[in-house]
Amino acid sequence: MKLALDAVLVATLLVLALFSLAARQARASAIGFMGFGLVLALVWVRLGAVDVALTEAAVGALTGLLLLGATSLATPAAQPSRPLRLALAGLCALVAGGLAFLVLEAPDPAPSLAAAAVEPLAALDLGNPVTAVLLAYRALDTLLETVVVVLALIGIWSLAPDADWRGAPMVPGADAPSPPLRLLARLLPPVGLVVAVHILWIGADAPGGKFQAATLIAAMGLLVLMAGLAPAPKLGNTRLRALVVGGPALFLALGLLGFLVPGSFLAWPEGLAKPVIVLIEVALTTSLAVLLALIVLGPGARRPRA
């Protein structure tokens, strides 16, 4: 019975992947990809990774928004020739076959760090081992990742023409929002914000955490902007920029303080680990929410001349 559910999920996942690759219209392709992301989130639940499922569902929606916004740019281009395509298909089949072989021949029992990850949880006063990995054992990964997100934003901003790069980005649809969108943009954000704070707070002990919360807050902000209820912020705004770098900067500063107290980079002082982690989570959530929303909005632009 359970295997049947898995089989149905896998079949749906693969059909949606094929559909989004082969759909004739770019728009259908992007919508198929959004459906793929939602089914993938269900697969993550089946694999016992609820934290990942939440992240996939939340971030997948933002990715879908980006791809949908770009569908009008799709230009017809020449397909590679048939022999070349056949050769490529053979190569990709070889890669997939190799990976499938690895899956079938995986060592049993599988290597696992689960026991090592659970053991210090009590000392950290955390209940969610994934949060512990992200902010205690492998905090360096998380720090570098937030820096990567900041770099992506800088890269996006640098695509603006010289004259416009400090200006406000263009918000799709904000000029003529539909009435239902305006209603939703008034009703949803309070609920979304409460849910986001809840997800952030329980992240210490249950599935949830800063990425999921930040994505939700970013989505709420985008909803308000796209309904035209608030103007998009000017990208040259100092306070906005301080919000963007504040979280990573605090993370880095506390990491450097680790040299003084426990004696190594990104090590938290004993007994204070929980408050430090909560502080970083809150600061990172704020920065990531602003970052993700600004990334979706894109570079600064001038209003189109009427």
Partner: peptide
């Protein structure tokens, strides 16, 4: 239900892929 280390890596990966 699963090894938390690869799960945390995937969460990081999803956000970087989005960027």
């Amino acid at each position: 239900p699963g090894d938390p280390v690869p799960q945390a890596l995937v969460i990081t990966g999803i956000v970087v892929a989005f960027a």
